[in-house]
Deep mutational scan, measured.
Amino acid sequence: MGFKLLSKLLVYLTASIMAIASPLAFSVDSSGEYPTVSEIPVGEVRLYQIADGVWSHIATQSFDGAVYPSNGLIVRDGDELLLIDTAWGAKNTAALLAEIEKQIGLPVTRAVSTHFHDDRVGGVDVLRAAGVATYASPSTRRLAEVEGNEIPTHSLEGLSSSGDAVRFGPVELFYPGAAHSTDNLIVYVPSASVLYGGCAIYELSRTSAGNVADADLAEWPTSIERIQQHYPEAQFVIPGHGLPGGLDLLKHTTNVVKAHTNRSVVE
Rank of each mutant, 00 (worst) to 15 (best):
L9K: 08
L9E: 07
L10S: 09
L13H: 15
T14Q: 05
A15P: 05
M18R: 04
A21I: 07
A21N: 03
P23Y: 06
A25D: 09
F26H: 15
F26T: 03
S27T: 09
E33Q: 14
P35E: 08
T36R: 07
V37L: 08
S38F: 10
V42P: 06
G43A: 12
E44P: 06
V45C: 07
R46C: 12
L47I: 05
W55K: 02
S56A: 06
S56W: 08
H57A: 14
I58W: 05
A59N: 13
T60I: 03
S62N: 15
F63G: 07
F63Q: 07
G65S: 11
G65Q: 12
Y68A: 09
Y68L: 07
G78I: 13
L81I: 12
T86P: 13
W88G: 14
W88V: 12
K91P: 07
N92A: 08
N92L: 06
L97E: 05
K102R: 09
K102L: 12
Q103F: 15
I104P: 06
V108P: 14
R110V: 08
S113Y: 04
S113A: 15
H115L: 00
F116P: 02
H117P: 00
H117D: 00
D119I: 01
D119R: 01
R120T: 05
V121L: 04
G123N: 02
V124C: 08
D125K: 13
D125P: 11
A129Q: 09
A133I: 14
A133S: 04
T134P: 07
S137P: 04
S137M: 07
S139T: 14
T140V: 10
R141G: 10
L143W: 12
G148L: 09
P152T: 07
T153L: 04
L156Q: 04
L156N: 02
E157P: 10
G163N: 04
D164F: 04
A165C: 12
A165D: 13
F168N: 03
F168V: 07
G169D: 07
G169A: 12
F174T: 06
A178W: 07
H180S: 00
H180C: 00
D183T: 00
N184H: 01
I186A: 12
V187C: 04
V187A: 08
Y188G: 08
V189A: 10
V189W: 03
Y196T: 01
G197R: 00
G198Y: 15
G198W: 00
C199A: 01
I201Q: 00
I201P: 00
S208N: 14
G210D: 09
N211S: 07
A213L: 14
A215G: 09
L217A: 14
W220C: 03
S223R: 03
S223W: 00
S223H: 06
I224K: 00
I224Q: 09
Q228W: 11
Q229M: 05
H230W: 08
Y231M: 15
P232N: 02
E233T: 10
A234M: 11
F236M: 03
F236C: 08
V237I: 02
H241Y: 02
G242T: 02
G242P: 01
P244L: 05
G245A: 04
L247S: 13
L249C: 15
T253D: 01
T254F: 14
V257M: 15
V257T: 06
K258T: 06
R263D: 08
R263H: 04
S264E: 03
S264H: 11
V265A: 06
V265D: 08
V266H: 15
